[in-house]
């Protein structure tokens, strides 16, 4: 079952668009955080009491990033040509994009946590 999933993932396309899924998620989450806080503070003068929506959104963002990273990890291990994987072949290109996607997913994961952390600590709008 897992093996089948992996081979399916290995055959997915990796493009410039899939490369930026994780950072785009970070960007959307960031914008959402900013607007959410700004609109709340401006319109009600205070923070949401129970920022449940916020945490659900953050969890969702982290999930998307994790999936993007997971797919990338598998794709970056697709067996193919010999090392150093710097040739003009299909599998080297796939491995390269996958590897970069994985790194970006890691960075975006940290980014989302960095963004969300202040919400834990701060409680009002001042």
């Amino acid at each position: 079952m897992i093996r089948k999933l992996h081979s399916h993932i290995g055959s997915l396309q990796a493009t410039l668009w899939t490369l930026i899924v994780a950072p785009t998620t970070w960007a959307v989450h960031f914008l959402f955080s900013y607007l959410w806080a700004a609109v709340y503070c401006a319109k009600t003068g205070q923070f949401a009491e129970e920022p449940l929506v916020y945490w659900v959104g953050t969890g969702l963002a982290l999930l998307v990033i994790a999936i993007s990273g997971y797919i990338a990890v598998i794709q970056s291990r697709v067996p193919g040509d010999p090392a150093p994987h710097e040739h003009s072949t299909e599998s080297d290109r796939l491995r390269f994009i996958a590897y970069s996607t994985m790194l970006l997913a890691g960075l975006s994961f940290i980014g989302v946590i960095f963004t969300a952390a202040p919400v834990l600590i701060l409680e009002d709008c001042r």
Binding site: S33, Y34, A37, C41, T115, A117
Partner: peptide
């Protein structure tokens, strides 16, 4: 609002 500043400070780091 301080919370907005915090988001941006986080990204700056």
């Amino acid at each position: 609002p301080k919370i907005s500043l915090a988001f941006f400070s986080a990204a700056s780091q």
